[in-house]
Design a binder for these strands. Structure first.
Length: 555
RNA sequence: UGACCCAUGGUGUAACGGUAGCACUACAGAUUUUGGUUCUGUCUGUUAAGGUUCGAAUCCUUAUGGGUCAACCA
């Protein structure tokens, strides 16, 4: 209907309303707040693109802030990986990377202010006792016996906590909110705990650390974040987020929640992903089967395809399960435009052209990318002995088989039309060689033969074809929602054939010059990307995504 | 059993009280020196019942279904 009218998602609607009202003087500032305790995955890609694209669209910027308030689980190693992944995706954060730990002093003073104003107290109860007193969402909680401690005593104890007077777990600082709230997060949440732990940035300077709820919103506020976008499970934290802003009288960042992305055959639980690594089911966080950014990059998924995917998925609040086909479609679409073509025979059958001179070699030209003439051409050698795909020959073909069969003609891409005249088999009956003849007047670009063929095959010259390791990847799981079964573990759905290594393939010689990370379309097969381990001596290609097939050979 | 959130083709997402559209998938057909790409077409949808209104996917009520929340994790 309104084709040229732009469709806004619900967050854009909120932003445009704010803009119209002149809120924050028209400034938009977002942030991406990862915890440095693991690698980024496809779910984070959505959060990253939403935050960065929204800021870009409305002339704002995006902070990268590491939410590093738990020294026990966080490491500098992850910080570097996360930075690299975001940059690879094509985004630049505002200024230097920031850290919640940069605000530990400020946060501490916020906490003292809360105590002074009677909004927080030290609780000597154990974790178990606190949990017990919170009760369940169905019934009101009960107040801690320490809840009405005098301000002076609270302050004194908090300072002693900070000074290291108490062992881990003996006391906490709690916000004094409402133990009867139906929202569990409002039942006097713990906001500081004692942890005599080494922090990846502040070292041993602190032995008390703020909890998420007392760090995240305040960090947003300190940085002047106007729109703090997070996933739906934080909805229940929003009243608390707002409560702290109000009690502290600080910049009013606004939290907005959207539904996280689920994709068929993919899992995004850090814990489960870690398990795959630890159990050796994959080779590491960057295994091309992993839905991590590092894994997808190694698989050959272009950053632009990932961005486009998120764009197409959209943003809303309802639960969703996106078909992986959409992701693959985005990858193909991008690679079709950008990758050079090459010919690779995965499972070779030898061809001998009986009427082609034994020692002759011709050099034929092939376009690198029919979608993009600026990619130029390359040269391929051609001679009497060639390889074609085993799937491209059938002794007894079905009626709509366009490929080679006894007595049939096919074109060899960029070369000649050939006719199959004789089949040679080994003792087990397997075809080992085809004796063919070629039609000298059918050369590509110069065809005067008048012959019509239905099929065009890819091929390589036996004389200079190279060998390589080709890693064929398939889905890691056999179930579209491996993490969605209460009675089963994701490991129950591992696809035993998710990696099949092919060492018998023969590749056109130009592929020896591939660079790690470079993607190609292996003609009529799929997109393949030179692995990080690719070398001239040991070429390795990863299957990125196959080409769409509207015809499947019946076996 | 409490509170909060959500409900549009197979999937995802639009339509902001006025003809339910787009993309992916699937299936046809055209083009093609890649059974790719491109192009064209087809199939399939407003959870249910009431109400408000000239008119409801949209507003109201109820029901149903799904999700989330009870870490000194984030």
């Amino acid at each position: 209907m309104s084709d040229n009218k732009e469709h806004l998602n619900f967050i854009e609607e909120i932003i445009e309303e704010d803009l119209q009202e002149g809120k924050h003087n028209g400034h938009i500032h977002t942030r991406f707040p990862p915890e440095p305790n693991g690698y980024l995955h496809i779910g984070h890609v959505k959060a990253i693109t939403i935050n960065f694209e929204l800021a870009k669209k409305y002339g704002g910027s995006t902070n990268l802030r590491f939410d590093d308030t738990n020294p026990t689980t966080e490491e500098t190693e992850y910080v570097e990986g996360i930075k690299r992944d975001i940059q690879w995706l094509g985004y630049t954060w505002n200024g230097d990377a920031l850290y919640a730990s940069d605000y530990f002093d400020k946060l501490y003073h916020y906490a003292e202010k809360l105590i002074l104003d009677g909004h927080a107290y030290i609780d000597d109860s154990t974790a178990e006792q606190i949990a017990e007193m919170k009760k369940t969402p169905m019934e009101a909680g009960i107040e801690s016996p320490y809840r009405n401690r005098p301000v002076d005593e609270n302050l004194d104890l908090f300072r002693k906590m900070k000074a290291g007077a108490f062992p881990d777990g003996t006391r906490v600082l709690r916000a004094k909110v409402d133990m009867t709230s139906p929202n569990m997060h409002m039942r006097d949440p713990v906001i500081y705990r004692i942890k005599h732990d080494h922090h990846h940035r502040t070292g041993d300077q602190w032995c008390i650390y703020p909890m998420y709820d007392f760090a995240h919103g305040q960090s947003d506020s300190i940085e002047g974040i106007t729109h703090s976008l997070c996933s739906l499970e934080f909805t229940h934290h929003r009243p608390l987020y707002d409560w702290f802003i109000e009690k502290l009288g600080i910049f009013p960042s606004r939290q907005i929640e959207f539904a996280r992305m689920n994709v068929t055959y993919l899992i995004t639980s850090k814990r489960k992903l870690l398990k795959l690594v630890e159990e050796g089911i994959v080779t590491g966080w960057d295994d091309p089967r992993m839905p991590t950014i590092a894994g997808m990059r190694r698989r050959g998924y272009p950053a632009a395809a990932l961005r486009e995917f998120c764009e197409k998925v959209g943003v809303a609040k309802r639960d969703n399960l996106i078909e992986i086909e959409l992701l693959e479609s985005c990858v193909r679409d991008e690679l079709n435009k950008t990758s050079d073509r090459a010919m690779v025979v995965m499972d070779p059958i030898r061809i001998t052209l009986r009427n082609y001179e034994e020692n002759k070699t011709e050099y034929l030209t092939a376009e690198n990318n029919p979608e993009d003439a600026t990619r130029g051409e390359r040269t391929m050698s051609f001679s009497r002995h060639l390889f074609i795909e085993r799937d491209d020959f059938m002794e007894n073909p079905p009626k709509n088989y366009f490929r080679l069969y006894p007595g049939g003609n096919v074109r060899l891409k960029n070369a000649y039309i050939i006719s199959c005249e004789e089949i040679i088999k080994d003792e087990s009956g397997e075809v080992t060689e085809l004796i063919c003849s070629y039609h000298p007047d059918s050369k590509s670009g110069n065809d005067t033969s008048g012959l019509k063929v239905k099929g065009t095959l890819h091929w390589v010259n036996a004389a200079d074809a190279i060998e390589a390791e080709i890693r064929e990847y398939d889905k890691l799981f056999t179930d579209p929602t491996p993490a969605g079964h209460d009675d089963k573990d994701v490991l129950d759905f591992i696809n035993p054939n998710s990696l099949v290594i092919n060492r018998k393939a023969r590749l056109e010689s130009s592929l020896s010059k591939a660079k790690p990370g470079q993607a190609f379309q292996f003609l009529r097969k799929g997109y393949y990307t030179a692995d990080d381990e690719f070398t001239l001596e040991h070429p390795v290609f990863n299957a990125t995504v196959n080409l769409k097939e509207s015809f499947k050979v019946q076996k």
